[in-house]
Nucleic acid binder design. Structure first.
Lengths: 211, 211
DNA sequence: ACGCGCATCCCTCCATCGGGTGACTGCCAG
DNA sequence: CTGGCAGTCACCCGATGGAGGGATGCGCGT
């Protein structure tokens, strides 16, 4: 497969809702014969452009309004299970990183990395490798042990976050206060939280609750 | 003053810790005679490059590790009260937006805006105007009525956020539990929160607490 | 000198919270 | 079909939280 690299350039699709970032990416590829940018768009048009161009590698921002990068990744991988997708995000501690990897992303580039890192990752991913930076991998490892709350527990915590008492949470979910207390106890245990307030901050930090 | 624009290009300094964004900005200015980019760097070198180039307009990202964009703005305005600084940020709901304006920023550009918006803002700011997009101005208006917590209240809430009880907060701050309760009561009143948990979510949303 | 905001401390009172324990249902996988 | 898990409900109890009330001192600006 590496032979192909010499025959035709690696085609790249960039998905980001920031025109400035797209300009930057385009600038990186400018004048390169090894790769070329076949398209650039935001999340909504990601799948359509993928189907149209069938790029070798797709660069995908995670933080986008409307269709999230996560959804876009899932849609593309659903359409083409062999799609090579590289996540392009701002923060290494991105709470969606793990989900992106699970969704099928095979590369991960931080926006504060150099252009050479970007190019190197694209080459590696195109050659069939996974390219996850060590610092990101370590972040991921922490979240791998991520205890997931049950749907019910998430609902309870969501209401607790906006100041509802156990009684009012019960009223809101149409269950008894006692049941709410059970859920809350389990939440505290799972998150290793001292109290409901702590649980909310932990959940926000982990992306369980979107504030 | 508009005559100057024809005599020499508007000099622009770009400050952002993302090389990709800097590439994008550079790409926007490429081949333009009206303006030219005199420098690009991250937050730490912002002041030094400002002093070196004395640009007409400075583009400043707010979200940066180490020296924040906010600090950089303050440092530059301290050095040169007439500095024309345009904030360049990702989210219109940026909690630091108000502080940036207060710190002396005279323009505000969202990264999801088009290059023409960026250029237009630079022209406007250079001509001596303030350029704050309507949608941002409206966001700002909401935060204008921002109730600010006292330093002590912030400390109390910060400890409450990580699950400390009033008693332990008192121990941590070396004050009595009763005093903590008074602070907490004032916090709840100021934020219109139902309880401490709600107060924390509100504070996080407003950027009072950085999660 | 006065007011005012901030911070400190003290008291009472009651609702709420969180831990412990136990038990019943429904469902799905082994 | 038997276990495990999610969800439900119940009761007890000690600790905590939040709403009142009132009080002192300190600094700061007018």
């Amino acid at each position: 497969m590496t032979l192909l690299q010499h025959n035709r350039p690696i085609s790249v699709l960039a998905v980001d809702d920031h025109p400035l970032i797209l300009e930057g990416i385009a600038a990186v590829f400018e004048g390169m014969s090894e790769m070329n940018l076949v398209g650039a768009c935001d999340g909504r048009q990601a799948l359509a452009l993928y189907q149209q161009h069938l790029p070798d590698v797709t660069l995908m921002d995670l933080q986008m309004p409307g269709v999230s990068g996560l959804e876009a990744i899932e849609l593309i991988r659903q359409y083409d299970p062999h799609a090579r997708i590289v996540v392009l995000t701002t923060y290494k501690g991105d709470v969606h990183a793990l989900r992106a990897i699970k969704a099928g992303a095979v590369g991960y580039v931080l926006k504060n990395m150099m252009r050479t890192d970007l190019l190197e990752t694209i080459r590696g991913v195109h050659a069939g490798h996974r390219r996850i930076p060590a610092e990101v991998a370590m972040e991921l490892a922490e979240y791998m042990s991520e205890v997931s709350l049950t749907p019910r527990e998430t609902e309870v915590l969501k209401l607790a976050a906006v100041g509802k008492s156990n009684k009012r949470i019960g009223a809101g979910l149409d269950i008894s206060e006692d049941t709410v207390k059970v859920h809350m106890k389990n939440i505290l245990a799972k998150l290793h939280a001292a109290d409901r307030t702590h649980a909310v901050t932990i959940a926000v930090r982990r992306g369980i609750l979107q504030f």
